[in-house]
Design a protein around this nucleic acid. Sequence first.
DNA 1: TTCCTATTTGCCATTTTAGGAAAATAATTT
DNA 2: AAATTATTTTCCTAAAATGGCAAATAGGAA
Lengths: 106, 106
Amino acid sequence: MTEKEHQRYRARAKVIKALGHPTRLFLVDQIAHEEKCVCELTQLVGADMSTVSKHLAILREAGIVEDEKRGLQVFYRLRVPCILNLFTCVEGVLKADAKAQAAAAR
Amino acid sequence: MTEKEHQRYRARAKVIKALGHPTRLFLVDQIAHEEKCVCELTQLVGADMSTVSKHLAILREAGIVEDEKRGLQVFYRLRVPCILNLFTCVEGVLKADAKAQAAAAR
DNA sequence: TTCCTATTTGCCATTTTAGGAAAATAATTT
DNA sequence: AAATTATTTTCCTAAAATGGCAAATAGGAA
């Protein structure tokens, strides 16, 4: 792997890694169809607001979501909708797992 | 987020997290179209074989790749081709980033 | 201004991840 | 059987990620 290649894979990995956390996946799902403020997301997640804020910051820095401040609140929305296709694929992996396990048990 | 939901998101995150590393993304790319043995992948990556083996194990445990031992060698291949679509989406994120940066600089 | 609310940031303890070196396994070859 | 090759596992250390609490920041309302 050349240095240039490595750099490219690092950039890609940063985006994917940002999605590699249960809470952040949940957040992406929550704002998939309509923007929501941190306060609402905090309630939905059920963790400290600072924790949720930091998760959102990671998604923002990865370029997956964008934010907009209106009054006191900050609203987050999905920036790249194709992310949702990813979920379909991941479900495919999990389904293949279930099938393989069933076959192994047979 | 209920416990059941959390469990579901954790399973999904495990799959995605497995992809969230430069070397593992590179490995997936390398075996995308034809299986390769650990020895060949080790040379391509340019790291310790034990390191590469461990990365492959993470991908296997996530259900993304599968392995087959033939003689002394172990060959790895992609198990879920839709993973490759993900790369397209990630490139989209990176491209959107570049565009936004260009706009901000203007 | 002062108070209140929403959000982010800094700090800290804990856990997880990464990667190399060496040892352990496994299948071939001599 | 002994030596060789490919791979995995174990051990260990360094680095990064997590998450809550408290403090800082920012905007709006009294």
